[in-house]
Write a protein that binds this DNA or RNA. Structure first.
Lengths: 144, 144
DNA sequence: ACCTATTACTTGTAAAATGCAAGTTATAAT
DNA sequence: ATTATAACTTGCATTTTACAAGTAATAGGT
């Protein structure tokens, strides 16, 4: 579950730097949130998120996330126009990062969605277990 | 420890979006890492980090981080040319975010600094307690 | 078969952010 | 008095982002 093609030139070997080079932009983590927490699976769903990502940026970010192995794509069996975007294990493993970022902002900024925050705060491990369980289940649903 | 001036227009109220709007760029978290984990306190130290931030970008990020209450500045008592950049409580509270990002990258990418990663993995809570304790101690050192 | 809608994009272009080199100001050291 | 250091700023080229519009491949309805 590690290693990469010999073409990745990082500014440094620091793991935080790696994270920041992959995820450090305005949109990537929001797309992952949409998949992980809202169950979004399609291009149009992402477009309808309240933050309002531009179509070309969305297409680019989905490409990057796939290239980094954080998401994968699958054709929709019931509609040939649709593409299903799905989190990989690597993508799911970002759940603790998202959680801590949510809790930090909720503690220090004026934010909404207090229901979600409450669940995370009351029992973080349980929250993470639930998110993971949902994902495992979905994996089972289509052979893999 | 919350609320902000009535001039903050966010794309959405989602706490993750707030985090991403404040921290979602290539440099902010690296500066915070330098302060939290390496004990860097001055402009020139940040410049010498291996990732190689440009001087104008560094100046801008320090301004933004201070504006968001994540860092504060203090004149160096022994050298009038120097400015000391210090983490606030809000900045310190990013420790869990940094930790999870480090652990994620260490698990899924080719990264270095395995000593740090090992300490985080073996006992995350202890690691965080140590980081916090160092910060508390520094606060004591200069009256506040 | 034909027409319209939907889905996932691409293209063009303006605006903003980033990166690099060089210059500036205030203080300190010699 | 001169030189060095620390923390910046400025100018400009390059890259990234944003917004509006357009396109190709299905799908659904008549």
């Amino acid at each position: 579950m590690k290693g990469q093609k010999p073409g990745v030139k990082r500014r440094s070997g620091c793991p935080l730097n790696a994270s920041v080079e992959i995820l450090g932009d305005r949109w990537s983590l929001l797309i992952i949130r949409d998949m992980m927490l809202r169950g979004y699976r399609s291009y149009n769903q992402f477009l309808q998120s309240p933050e309002g990502i531009a179509t070309n940026i969305l297409a680019d970010r989905l490409r990057q996330l796939e290239k980094h192995g954080i998401i994968r794509t699958a054709p929709d069996p019931s509609d040939g126009r649709k593409v299903r975007y799905l989190l990989t294990r690597k993508g799911m493993d970002l759940a603790p990062v998202l959680t801590e970022m949510v809790l930090w902002a909720a503690a220090h900024e004026e934010t909404g969605n207090q229901a979600l925050v409450q669940r995370m705060r009351e029992d973080k491990d349980r929250f993470l277990a639930e998110v993971r369980q949902r994902w495992e289940k979905e994996q089972g649903e289509h052979s893999r």
